[in-house]
Design a protein around this nucleic acid. Sequence first.
DNA 1: GCCAACGTTGGC
DNA 2: GCCAACGTTGGC
Length: 152
Amino acid sequence: MKSEPSVYGIDDLRRDRRTSWGGVRNYQVRNMFRDDFATGDRAFFYHSSCEEPGIVGTMKVLGKAYPDPAQFDPESEYFDPRSRPESPAWLAVDVQFQRRYPQPLSLDVLRRHPALESMLILRRGNRLSVTPVTEAEARVLLSLAAGLAGRG
DNA sequence: GCCAACGTTGGC
DNA sequence: GCCAACGTTGGC
């Protein structure tokens, strides 16, 4: 799950302990929230548009997706006048802070790893702020992350 | 339903 | 700031 640290980063999540991951206005992501997210799922936190893009930690999904309240709030930048409460267009999920890596798993490192070659988030032109990670990819990422800790 | 124009994203 | 790449929009 991708976010710009200048907007909301891993340190913000660590401080808040948990947050509503909303404001996503993309139908593919909406569908993933709706169909693929389950309580207890784990997710990687990715920093984009920053000095060192990469995976900076992990979090846990706290429950099923629910209507993103911001879509009904005219004051919100995520307001969607076409959305109706009886058929909400956009969803959000609650996530809980789990871990912050001592240093980011940099985009460079991720790109160099053959086992991560087909990860969607690394694909050129990827537009999705939430992308699936396979079991095998997750294992590789977690072991790379474990390696980071040692270098402290 | 097509498709060009447009806006946004994100790495560099 | 640039630019490639994509999703969305809207005219037809």
